[in-house]
Computed example of a mutant assay.
Amino acid sequence: MTEPLIELRNATKRFPGSGGGIHTAVKDLDFQVAPGEFVAVVGPTGCGKSTTLSLVSGLEPASAGQTTVRGRAVDGIPEGVGYMFQQDAVLPWKSVLDNVAFGPKLRGASKSEARAKASEWVRIVGLAGFESYYPHQLSGGMRKRVSLAQTLVNEPEILLMDEPFSALDVQTRQLMQDELLRVWAGTGAAVIFVTHDLEEAIVLADRVIVMTASPATVCGDFTVGLERPRSVEEVRLTPEFRAIYQEIWQTLRDQVEAARAKGADRVA
């Protein structure tokens, strides 16, 4: 058996709540991610999916339980972690090439080494010819490609993605899903991908983890037995995809309805 690269054991995170109380965002989380595995996390709005990424990245310490990376407790940002947020992190005063080269330069690469590495990743994500463009000259999809190159140029062993394509239109989002699968396939990185979109989770992932309404815990862990490499559009049309979707939706729907009922109770 392969040792897990990432493991959460009874991981719980509490924050100060409004009015002096305590808000429990996630409770007793238990799951593992193997090296090179692509895991998607879905659940109701506000259930704590992003908090889970914060525990793995070391941006937030667990209040109870434990999060480990490579068998060691996370007590800061672990080496080899890349994080792609909902909002891109491109620097508006830097060109595409300089944005992508910024990470390697911070890690000690010379200017020429950083730019050579960045140039290769700009090509890989399909932006060859746009190296000298600035962010305001790019479409939303192109900016996401820059963000993807910014993250992968540092060769992360772990890639954390917090709804990175949620702001894109449907067509561009599908293109970026295919693009992510293409470039990830050659990296060997383990991925935790947070999304509200169950279809997106299934077409991308090896496993889909379903979280409960807040305070979130794991209520379902489903294997996605679709062959790789995958074409996003072709996969969506297969009977296998529809069967997996129906299976997972049975669990996810209950949690969405529970979250809606809690919201209605608070309003009342």
Rank of each mutant, 00 (worst) to 15 (best):
A25M: 10
P44E: 01
D30P: 00
G48M: 12
G20P: 13
E37W: 12
D30M: 03
F31H: 04
E37Q: 14
T24D: 00
E37K: 11
V56Y: 04
E37I: 12
D28L: 10
G21L: 10
G17W: 08
F38Q: 00
D30H: 11
A40H: 08
G20M: 12
Q32L: 09
L55G: 06
H23F: 14
G46Y: 12
A25W: 09
G36V: 05
L29N: 13
H23D: 08
G19Y: 14
L53K: 11
G17V: 07
L29R: 13
T45A: 14
P35L: 06
F31Q: 06
D28T: 10
F31Y: 10
S54G: 13
A40I: 04
A25L: 11
L53Q: 12
K27C: 00
P44Y: 00
L29Q: 13
K49A: 02
T52W: 05
T52A: 05
Q32E: 15
L55C: 10
L55M: 10
G43A: 04
S18F: 12
C47H: 10
V26K: 09
L55H: 09
G19K: 14
F38K: 01
G46P: 03
K27Y: 01
F38N: 01
V42F: 03
A40S: 15
G48K: 09
D30Y: 02
P44R: 03
C47T: 06
E37L: 11
L29E: 12
G36L: 07
C47S: 13
P35D: 05
G21M: 13
V56H: 04
V56Q: 05
K27H: 09
I22M: 15
V42K: 01
T45M: 07
K27D: 05
T24E: 13
T52C: 09
H23A: 13
G46R: 10
A40L: 04
Q32Y: 03
G46I: 08
V33M: 08
V39D: 02
V39H: 07
V26W: 05
A40Y: 01
Q32H: 08
G20F: 11
S18R: 15
G20E: 12
V41I: 15
T52Y: 06
V33D: 04
G17S: 07
V42T: 04
G20V: 13
T51N: 05
K27N: 05
P44N: 00
A34N: 13
T52L: 14
C47K: 02
A40M: 07
F38S: 01
G36P: 06
G17E: 09
S50M: 04
Q32R: 14
S50N: 06
G21W: 13
T52E: 05
K27R: 12
G36H: 05
E37C: 11
V39L: 14
K27L: 03
G19Q: 14
V39E: 11
I22D: 15
L55V: 09
V42G: 01
G17Y: 06
V42L: 01
G17R: 08
G48R: 10
P35N: 09
G46C: 12
V33F: 04
